[in-house]
């Protein structure tokens, strides 16, 4: 990206909304989630608000039990908040029925979990194609998209392997391919690097980041500050509440001044 290319782009008319990098793709508005009632009630999330924009990766950090996974499952429509609203691409999913949420999820959202969650009896490419096929896309078209997603994570040569015959890092890359397959534009990852060595973990993040840079968006739950640093913003949760946030700072001579 040279300076002249940049100024030329600036001279162009404003691009279509779909590619607007400021577009909010996911929003949580005063979301709370509690479990149980009375004395034994646990407030896992307490009035959490959060906006995720296209091209943005937000990391969530916090001690065990602070509500990170709860936030992610609610953001992805896998769980419903006790109160508050969730919007995905402008649609309030908290008002939708289960079937409609599931359909929206399959089209728009991709999940990556610490334990990969691949279907053991399906090959890598079948695992990646599965959500598309569930969505009624023809087997052939789903396979073509799956191939493309596997290529994006550098795993095309293992397309016909079963999960059990792959290393942890390879399985995690398959699960990233599954999360980005088709047109899915929001990646939600819960400790995706937890079980991986540092170099493999980095390559998984690098893939997520590339996908997000090319127009998707994502939330990354992690315990590892080094991995959170791949994000544009880092949000800290404690007892179900957002207690702090770090944004990327400007390019300064960090190396010269140190931490």
């Amino acid at each position: 990206m040279s300076g002249s290319a940049h100024s030329a782009a600036n001279a162009q008319p404003i691009p279509a909304v779909r590619h607007d990098r400021d577009e909010i793709v996911l929003e949580l508005s005063s979301v709370s989630r509690s479990y149980g009632t009375g004395d034994t009630a646990v407030t896992a999330l307490d009035e959490v608000s959060l906006q995720l924009r296209r091209g943005e990766l937000v990391a969530i950090m916090g001690t065990s039990g602070s509500g990170k996974s709860t936030l992610l499952t609610i953001a992805g429509g896998l769980d419903r908040p006790t109160s508050g609203r969730v919007f995905v691409n402008g649609t309030q999913i908290t008002g939708l029925g289960a079937k409609k949420i599931a359909a929206l999820r399959r089209k728009t959202l991709g999940f990556v979990f610490q334990d990969y969650n691949l279907v053991p009896v399906l090959t890598a490419i079948e695992n990646v194609a599965l959500p598309l096929e569930l969505d009624g896309i023809s087997a052939r078209a789903a396979r073509r998209s799956a191939k493309y997603a596997l290529e994006a994570v550098g795993l095309l040569e293992l397309a016909n392997r079963y999960p059990d015959d792959m290393s942890g890092g390879q399985q995690q890359r398959v699960s990233i391919a599954r999360a980005i397959v088709g047109d899915r534009s929001i990646i939600l990852a819960d400790e995706p690097t937890g079980a991986l060595d540092s170099v493999t973990g980095e390559s998984v993040l690098s893939m997520m980041r590339q996908r997000i840079d090319s127009g998707a968006a994502g939330i990354l739950v992690t315990h590892d500050a080094r991995h959170a640093a791949w994000a544009d913003r880092i949000i800290y949760l404690r007892d179900g509440r957002i207690t702090d946030e770090t944004r990327a700072n400007t390019l300064d001579g960090i190396l010269a001044t140190g931490a």
């Binding site: 690098s206 980041r209 500050a225 080094r226 959170a228 640093a229 791949w230 994000a231 880092i234 702090d244 770090t246 990327a248 700072n249 390019l251 300064d252 960090i254 190396l255 140190g258 931490a259």
Partner: peptide
């Protein structure tokens, strides 16, 4: 908290350099 902000910013900066 102040220290952690600074440290996270440093990490973000280093990560960008590395990328």
């Amino acid at each position: 908290q102040t220290q952690r902000h600074a440290a996270m910013n440093t990490l973000q900066e280093l990560t960008r350099l590395k990328r």
